[in-house]
Design a protein around this nucleic acid. Sequence first.
DNA 1: TCGCTGGTGTCACTCGGTGTCAAGATGCCC
DNA 2: GGGCATCTTGACACCGAGTGACACCAGCGA
Lengths: 193, 193
Amino acid sequence: MAERKRRLVSDELTAAALELLTVKGFDVVTIDEIAAAAGVSKRTFFRYFASKEDVVVQFLADLGTGMRAGLAARPVGERPSVALLHAVSVPVRACGDHADRALRVVQLILRTPALLARFLERQARWRDELTAELALRQGLDPDTDLYPRLAAGMALTAFDAVLQRWSDSDGSEDPAELTARAFAVIAPALDAP
Amino acid sequence: MAERKRRLVSDELTAAALELLTVKGFDVVTIDEIAAAAGVSKRTFFRYFASKEDVVVQFLADLGTGMRAGLAARPVGERPSVALLHAVSVPVRACGDHADRALRVVQLILRTPALLARFLERQARWRDELTAELALRQGLDPDTDLYPRLAAGMALTAFDAVLQRWSDSDGSEDPAELTARAFAVIAPALDAP
DNA sequence: TCGCTGGTGTCACTCGGTGTCAAGATGCCC
DNA sequence: GGGCATCTTGACACCGAGTGACACCAGCGA
């Protein structure tokens, strides 16, 4: 019950923030403005989000959370390129589902340096998680073998390229198809003996 | 002459900043403190560096600037994996040269979220440059073909993995050898038909 | 009704970052 | 050497992000 109210305030805040930021630009909008639009005080904003960037980035970050789970769910014998393709497809599909809102968020992030920076930092954490999961799958030691970290990095590189292309095309290109094409390029390295 | 003085102040500032930040931690040191240690005012600090992160990140960023040039200098017929290996080797060698200072900077960046974020943002710009240069080399259109961006991303992934491992080993592992091993992993995708 | 708990607004504060202006240093030409 | 233009700097005021402290007001069980 109190949980539902918290969720409601959080949603109100993100909605107000995304609306204002995408329309007016990241730098010119103040936290006071966002908080006022959501009907709360600036102090309350910071009780829900750690920073101004967070309110945007967390929207995408939630999409990335399922990636490790998506990888863990794949059968152990599967080729890494296929397993990673499915893992990356989780956030990609999520983008396709909320295409309208997701596209605006992605475009905002990619053209705002401060947001891009924070987004990439989040992604670095996903990479650590993917690395651990991959090492587990393949029975490799991530402290001696470079493969797990490189494979995770390549998968996220593919993800970034897809987002970039999707954003540049204003959503006209199909994310799933882009992902498949990107993985076709990196697969030879992922599946090498 | 005035140029030399500017350079001197800049060096003084970076030296003071790196000393204070590595010893006391990024968050607890203020700009006033750094400026005072360098014998200038806070206002002057911001005439040399755009932000608190910049004074650290620029140190590494300068190393990355030569990467595109390093790639452009390679013969056109060379396999992408070899050309990119040489391009990435430029900043890697630079790290090896100032090993003591570079190692402290890298470790500081990798363990400070705000610095990591800004560093990755810089790297995203290197990736754009590498992408353009690669597209030029191979006669590909970076707006239709995914390969240039993916190849650039993979090379930087290798670079990141090297930095990470070098940092974790406190400099005991050889960066050049790590780079060679990393490129051996990603080469199959870089050189695919 | 009392007391407890959790979310909220207000206020004061620190610090990163910027615009403005006056003062000083440098260099150049006469 | 005396002016003059240019560049750099410090001082000050200011804005916005982010934090800590505290009082306030629900709801809720005893």
